[in-house]
Design a protein around this nucleic acid. Structure first.
Lengths: 118, 118
DNA sequence: AAGATCCGTTTCGCTTGCGAAACGAATGCG
DNA sequence: CGCATTCGTTTCGCAAGCGAAACGGATCTT
């Protein structure tokens, strides 16, 4: 990967988080829980396929919790469920354009905050 | 401030957030809501005094929400309430050692994740 | 001193999230 | 073909968070 954090000290990380969360709260970024957000990132930043049980294992959460998080993210159209044709018990969690836009905006926000850091 | 993020691109920020949240979930870091965490950072990273009203304005949340967040953070001993002697209607939110430790650990986690980024 | 104002908290009704357990449907196995 | 296993979901009871409004106590104003 070409882009890289050259140096992020613990203190700077705290200021970064502070700036980002503060601004995210103000902008009414539909406030996802930590788990919902982690799930969204997992789907977009790691290679498919993404199943419910796989996500549950990856993020150390229960399957019902994953189902509910998918309900919420699906309602927001940030991810989409699709049945696996090869094993119709499984569902494949897929990315959506809206989810991609949402994360790009978040990344932009974080980058901007980082640039203006004390 | 001496330490500084040299370059944090939007994409790198996403990977950074992903790594941190993923690990924070696993470690049972008492899972604070976004507002609770933002409040904690606000108290520790900006200069006192911190009143309920001021915090509510800073973080764009209602006063009852601040009260509840302080209840939670206080139970965890991450911050402490203290009545203002000069205006006994107000309370001053103060930092605790445990809160300081908690945030230092979080900062360390983030710095470590940043270092091992793809 | 009396009323208005400001502070943080509490109450109210509601929404959302949680894990354990049970569930139907699909697949694997003997 | 049965029967067990695995998939994601649903149900259950419960805990926690939310905003609006009302509240008591402290302070300010006149």
């Amino acid at each position: 990967m070409a882009d890289r954090v050259i140096s992020l000290t613990p203190t700077t990380a705290l200021f970064l988080w502070h700036g980002v969360m503060r601004r995210a709260l103000r902008e009414e970024h539909p406030d996802l829980t930590a788990r919902q957000f982690a799930l969204l990132l997992q789907v977009f930043l790691t290679p498919p396929p993404h199943t419910v049980r796989g996500l549950a294992a990856d993020l150390a959460m229960s399957k019902p919790a994953v189902t509910r998080a998918l309900d919420r993210l699906g309602r927001l159209d940030l991810v989409r469920r699709k049945r696996d044709k090869d094993d119709r018990r499984s569902i494949l969690v897929q990315r959506t354009v809206k989810g991609s836009v949402y994360l790009r905006e978040f990344g932009d926000l974080a980058a901007k905050v980082a640039k203006d850091l004390p």
